[in-house]
Amino acid sequence: MKLRVLYFAWLRERIGEPREMVETEAETVADLVEELRAREERYALAFSDLASVRVALDQELADFDASLAGVREIAFFPPMTGG
């Protein structure tokens, strides 16, 4: 499947781009993160501490064990600081 992957804040800076299309067979968010980590050093660096990474599937907050079935857009970002 083809996923639109978005990165925000320091994840965007570490990876070096705000978005990309990713072809993957990953079943869960955690599987996708493992695939990305294995790709290049910049991904390994961005995803080195998952405790400080949040994820949204089709613009809804989700967990790392969430399924990617039917998902079109996934976003990775640090804990939010609104207000």
């Binding site: 925000f8 804040a9 907050l61 976003a75 970002f77 804990p79 939010m80 600081t81 609104g82 207000g83």
Partner: peptide, 14 residues
């Protein structure tokens, strides 16, 4: 509203 938008609305400050 303030409590939730601080931690649950996707904003980041640099």
């Amino acid at each position: 509203l303030m409590d939730f938008l601080k931690s649950r609305a996707p904003f980041w400050k640099k």
